[in-house]
Design a binder for these strands. Structure first.
Lengths: 345, 345
DNA sequence: TTGTATGCGTTATCAG
DNA sequence: CTGATAACGCATACAA
């Protein structure tokens, strides 16, 4: 039974609702489906008059090719996906923006999947997202390495943000947290601070681990370090600030800018002057921390570079070329108003 | 020529790379594709031993059904999309979060498309996004009504956020900007302010228009209103603040919280005390404005409600039920530290 | 240049 | 309960 007679059978039930497919356009224009396909894809070797007829028919019927069917036939979708753990973190917006633009230049679209910090769903989400598109940019800092290693074959081609994956060769864009921390510490030391607090991020965060290590290494024989469990959000920073007063520290290194901002806010409520009585530094340089009161000294991560670089590597992968070497971005120390000379005791 | 012999022809060239499809699993398990399909979809009426064989084969081969092929066969994708003009605006994150969770309960996934404020690409993006999934949540405040009206048939089913569309019956979730503005103004008037500045959002923004109208209406015979072109971002608010000093206003109504925050920051730099010398209010109550110095008085939009409600309506639409009536959310006045009594002249 | 026939990977119908 | 087989909507060798 041909497709067409099938269609007309259905038409008996619902004449007006016949779906507008390539077949309908073909019938309307009086050509074959192949010709319609050619016209829609801009194939130049189609007679002008036929092309006209097809375009008119398509126009009248409001026809547009089905991306799903097209993807199946072509074996590619023309989209890539990025998985992020938390869209609320301004950290990602720069990456997303750059990635969107870079991909658009090659006629690729970006879709974003947010795991909402739901660690449990992340693997499923990643696989599903990946299978609906041609490539993946993966940011899953909390996912255990073994699990990621298991998933890796199913996710390829993909590029990693903010972590590396020993045992599976795929590009990754990482940030040199250690260097950033060193710069911040050097800055604080130069201001005379000798006893610092670190407001730690989530235990499971690899980047937190990197920061901690760098801090301890720098501290050896140079300054005292007090580590305070905290978190990664405004609220965490706000809540932890009260503990700061008893610690005799003169400066605070926060896990990231969000935490730093929360702490800053609480210190202000407590009547503690920043930076006169206490200095504080963040990490990331998210968009608005230059506007806090006082503006936040931080390690500025050039997020706008990451998007294009991620795309460049993913694009190479998708075309079976070998991607450029991994990027290890070094943050730039951004001195603002939240740091000042250590108060004399 | 059967599928299978076709496959083995190819295998000549690349034996090891034979794609793992339902057919391969079927062959491996020694059953038909139909059976594999049944097992993969949890169809209970399959003999235990067969089901076992299939699962083992699938496991060994690392098989997972192709979402694309599946979507084509089923006529549905199991995903919805949301189009936003700017992921950087914290305003959307609450909505996205709620929408993700609500959809997940029905086993639907959410994909996000960001138009990056690129008005030109927005229609194309909306259509493409829509055609790759089963429904759309559309937030396109700047798109001209006529254009949206043209697109509407191709976008259905969809629900609108933050605007209505006369001429096309589809659910929309809107915010009662006028009520929010009225509450803010009432608050400022009660504090003795009689000359206010409004930092206007983008001309093309319908919500800006609503705010302006409400302000003018409220102002009649009650207070003086100075309207300043501004924008929608931190930077806009920061930049416009210098103009404020000459205007003799005692209070500022900002287009949104971002602008308010930028202004707050600049006023602080200029040595103008908020709220002693100048009061300032925002709109939206995005997550961190409770942490600014001073914390921002604003009209709090309950964004966490919008996501679930959007899903409820989209879900109804996708199932040919009639959705509940439109929502017109009324913001709640959130008085914080950025407003105080008008200074006496 | 155009049409025919087939494949893309699944699901669903319908016999057996 | 299981297996052929026909869709789903499109693209593309191949033939004409």
């Amino acid at each position: 039974m041909s497709n067409r007679s099938q269609s007309s059978e259905r038409a008996h039930a619902q004449v007006s609702v016949e779906r507008v497919t390539i077949g309908l356009v073909a019938k309307t224009a009086g050509v074959s489906r192949a010709t319609v396909s050619r016209v829609m894809n801009g194939n130049p070797r189609v007679a002008q008059d036929l092309a006209q007829r097809v375009r008119r028919a398509a126009e009248e019927l409001g026809y547009a090719p089905s991306p799903v069917a097209r993807s199946l036939a072509l074996g590619r979708t023309g989209i890539i996906a990025m998985l992020v753990p938390d869209l609320g973190n301004p950290m990602f917006q720069g990456i997303l923006h750059g990635l969107t633009d870079a991909a658009a230049q090659e006629n690729y679209r970006l879709l974003v999947a947010d795991s909402n910090e739901n660690l449990h769903e992340e693997p499923v989400l990643a696989i599903e997202a990946r299978r609906r598109c041609d490539g993946l940019v993966l940011c899953a800092p909390r996912m255990p390495a073994e699990q990621l290693l298991d998933l890796a074959p199913q996710l390829a081609p993909f590029v990693l943000i903010n972590r590396e994956l020993p045992g599976f060769a795929t590009p990754s864009l990482t940030i040199d947290f250690a260097a950033g921390i060193r710069d911040l510490v050097t800055h604080l030391l130069s201001l005379g601070h000798r006893r610092l607090a670190y407001l730690a991020g989530p235990d499971t965060s690899a980047s937190n681990h990197a920061r901690v290590q760098a801090l301890h290494k720098a501290a050896e024989g140079t300054f005292e370090l007090v580590e305070l469990p905290c978190g990664a959000t405004f609220a965490d920073g706000h809540a932890v600030a009260d503990q700061l007063t008893d610690l005799q520290v003169t400066a605070v290194v926060a896990y990231n800018d969000l935490v730093a901002f929360g702490t800053l806010s609480r210190l202000h409520e407590l009547g503690i002057n920043v930076p006169a009585q206490m200095s504080i530094v963040g990490f990331d340089d998210i968009p608005f921390v230059r506007y806090t009161t006082p503006p936040l000294t931080t390690a500025s991560v050039p997020m706008d570079q990451l998007g294009p670089q991620a795309w460049e590597r993913l694009w190479a992968l998708m075309n079976d070329k070998s991607p450029e070497e991994n990027v290890h971005v070094r943050p730039r120390l951004e001195v603002r108003g939240s740091t000042g000379p250590a108060p004399s005791r």
